[in-house]
Simulated scan of single mutants.
Amino acid sequence: MTGAGPLVSIIVPVYDAGEHLEPCIRSILEQTHSALELILVDDGSTDGSGEVCDRLAAQDVRIRVIHQENGGIAVAQNAGLDAASGDLITFCDNDDLMAPRMLERLVELIESTGADMSCCRWKNVGASQGVAEMRKHADDPFGAYEVFDDPARAYQTVFSLAHRKLLRVELRYFSEANWGKMYRAHLFDGVRFPAGRYAQDVAVAMTLYERMSSVVSCEDALYYWLQRGDSVSHALRSAAYYSDIVHAHAQSFDVAIRLGVLPARAYTGMTALRFERRAAGTADELRRLEDDRRAVRTRVRQLSIWQRVICRALHLQRLLEIQVYNVTVHRRR
């Protein structure tokens, strides 16, 4: 284990994680980079997850537990950020796993290149196979990496699988999800996730990427994103949920336009308007839908015809890829 080196704060929002919580926590405690503080934010769990956090904290001084009333993932993440004392920060969902050398790899990359953020690839694995799959690949050698500047542009334009494979820019692809990434702590100075939002990560993504000079991305799949049928990602979505997606990507769109970046990902995100249209039923929901329509139209009109063509083409490619994803990954157990 590498106990030396910069302190890494790992923030894990915890809410009714059940049997998945302890494997998640143990995967973090078993990291080869042991200079870490694990901040578990129990967001009003009702299934005993808070007690699991306390029990494991009594066994390892690197664990800090925060208990709070349920406020949602953004409030929990913010509580973790407020408590973090590490030079570097990363996040983990309470039902996912981190490969034993994930921190080691991301720390080494960010320190050796001077980048503001390092990130790795991830694997979508059925929850029942996660630990076995992670152990099988624990000793895989590290692969290639790439350092690039202007991460805000990469985030907005490199997201379609076909596009990034064709142009060989796979390592420039990263999502707004906070897991699988390591941030320099100062990036969050004055930045917190908006409370009560479903798309809290999208809402701050461009703000963070605008602050970065460079990113280092490696091809190593070190984060295990476990799929299970009862997860939030599989839940029925409301009109309010889709409205929030539209609003978050509209914010992202505005930042991209200000930076002179083609807002292709934001364009695709705003097409969640079609799902909001299907879900809206009450008078309030229909009024909000009309407001969202106007907001989207106003933004799309800022694009040239050619920009609209590019955004539309990338959107259609991504739509096809999502359909394939939904009949493969989302069926895993």
Rank of each mutant, 00 (worst) to 15 (best):
L226K: 10
Q227F: 03
Q227D: 13
R228S: 06
R228Y: 07
R228D: 00
R228F: 06
G229D: 12
D230V: 00
D230Q: 01
D230M: 00
H234F: 14
H234P: 09
L236A: 14
R237C: 00
R237A: 00
S238H: 09
A239Y: 04
A239T: 03
A239H: 01
A239R: 00
A240G: 04
Y241Q: 01
Y241A: 02
Y242L: 02
D244S: 11
D244N: 08
D244R: 05
I245M: 03
I245N: 00
H247Q: 14
A248M: 08
A248C: 13
H249C: 09
H249A: 05
A250V: 02
A250S: 06
A250N: 00
Q251P: 04
S252L: 02
S252I: 05
S252T: 11
D254I: 10
D254W: 05
D254L: 09
A256I: 08
A256E: 06
A256C: 05
A256H: 06
I257W: 02
I257Q: 12
I257Y: 04
R258H: 07
L259F: 07
G260L: 13
V261Q: 11
L262Q: 14
P263Y: 13
A264Y: 03
R265Y: 02
A266N: 02
A266R: 06
Y267G: 09
Y267A: 11
Y267H: 13
Y267K: 12
T268F: 06
T268A: 13
G269S: 09
G269R: 03
T271C: 08
T271F: 09
T271L: 08
T271V: 09
A272C: 02
A272I: 04
L273P: 00
L273V: 03
R274D: 15
R274G: 07
R274C: 13
F275C: 12
E276M: 07
R277G: 11
R277D: 13
R277F: 14
R278Y: 11
R278E: 15
A280Q: 11
A280T: 08
A280F: 05
G281T: 11
G281W: 14
T282I: 01
T282L: 01
T282H: 01
T282K: 00
A283C: 10
A283G: 08
D284Q: 15
D284S: 10
D284H: 10
E285G: 06
L286G: 13
R288K: 15
R288Q: 14
L289G: 02
E290S: 00
E290T: 09
D291H: 04
D292T: 08
D292H: 10
R294C: 01
A295G: 11
A295S: 12
V296I: 12
V296D: 07
V296L: 02
R297Q: 10
R297H: 11
V300Q: 13
V300N: 12
V300I: 15
R301M: 09
Q302I: 05
L303W: 12
L303R: 05
S304M: 01
S304L: 01
I305T: 07
